[in-house]
Amino acid sequence: MAKVFIPSLMQELTDGQTQLDIQGSTVREIIKELEQSYPGVKDRLMDGFKLKGNINVAVDGEVSPIGVLAKVQENSEVHFLPALGGG
């Protein structure tokens, strides 16, 4: 199961849980699984089939260039972060 870190301002949706062990082989599956237990998570993070434009997902510390399509391993860490730009 992947270790999913819940952003502090989203923990209202997860009964205050800061970290959850979730089954899934992609970020999309992880979000789907989260939504089962904690309704509202999907709408918070996604816009249709994609992550919202201002949210990034990092799997094992690497921001995914392919958003929710990123593969997730058995012991992966998953973080949802505000999107950032560079100069």
Binding site: P7, S8, L9, M10, R44, L45, P82
Partner: peptide
Amino acid sequence: FEKQTKVNSNIAEHFQH
């Protein structure tokens, strides 16, 4: 953190780590 509030303000976004 992407939760839309009903507060019309100049603060576009607040997030926390």
